[in-house]
């Protein structure tokens, strides 16, 4: 089953009289359950592509289907709802809410986005805490845990709503090598356990090797380096 399909996907930014093409008519598809990486140097368009897949930024032209829905023309409120239902996010800076504990950070999407009942919510958060190995830190605040632990919490938060797709923009950029590898391993394990598609961007070649499918981007154009199954370059 295809979870992301892009056809002639283009993104241009306009600054005054200047139009800057960020993504230049790319075609690709990603199968559900894949562990995919977009790689490329800074300014290659990785983040722009992830933002479009994540319904944070609408494409200028072309078509984009995510989880079977054409997301190119969604309004902002529809995008927010779609993201809340289907997509989890992991950020480079972890982006945990500092006033909430680890438990509450993971719980946040179930309260503020999806409105789960209390008991079901607690069970789900405890399940995720266990899955990312953070049960012992549940009552700590983000300021009291390490960067690697924060990213574990972010992974749990991304998965807590049973999202079909998790997008991670440079998830290891602020972590040391060992921790970065552990986070990538964790994401892979989570993919296997929760059958979730992971798409992440990185420019670190040593992290890339963990990806099953790698899409290389340069100047907004796409090339494929497939070192596993499930990805294809159209």
């Amino acid at each position: 089953m295809t979870i992301v399909a892009a056809r002639q996907l283009t993104k241009e930014y306009v600054a005054g009289d200047i139009t800057v093409p960020a993504i230049r008519g790319v075609d690709f598809s990603i199968e559900a359950g894949s562990f995919v990486s977009f790689v490329g140097p800074s300014g290659s368009g990785k983040s722009t592509l992830l933002n479009m897949i994540g319904c944070l930024d609408p494409p200028t032209s072309g078509s984009l289907e995510v989880v079977g829905k054409d997301v190119a023309g969604l309004r902002s409120s529809e995008s927010a709802r779609f993201r809340g239902e289907h997509i989890g996010f992991i950020f480079q800076d972890f982006n945990l809410i500092p006033v909430l504990t680890v438990f509450e950070n993971i719980e946040y999407p179930l309260i503020m986005v999806q409105n789960w009942p209390v008991r079901k919510r607690r069970q789900q958060v405890e399940r995720l805490l266990e899955a990312v190995g953070m049960q012992d830190q549940a009552n700590k605040y983000p300021g009291q845990i390490s960067g690697g632990q924060k990213q574990r919490v972010a992974v749990a938060r991304a998965l807590v709503t049973n999202a079909k797709l998790v997008l991670a923009d440079e998830p290891t950029a602020n972590l040391d090598r060992d921790t970065a590898n552990r986070i990538i391993s964790l994401m892979k394990t989570m993919r296997d356990e929760f059958d979730t598609t992971f798409i992440f961007s990185t420019h670190d070649p040593k992290v890339v090797k963990n990806a099953e499918i790698v899409f290389a981007l340069e100047d907004g154009l796409l090339q494929t380096e497939s070192n596993g199954q499930g990805g294809s370059h159209v």
Binding site: G54, A80, G84, P98, Y108, P109, V113, A158
Partner: peptide, 16 residues
């Protein structure tokens, strides 16, 4: 602002 971006990105509705 960064925090608002985060909660908006993960699907928090503008009304919330």
């Amino acid at each position: 602002i960064h925090e608002i971006g985060t909660i908006a990105a993960i699907g928090t509705s503008p009304s919330k």
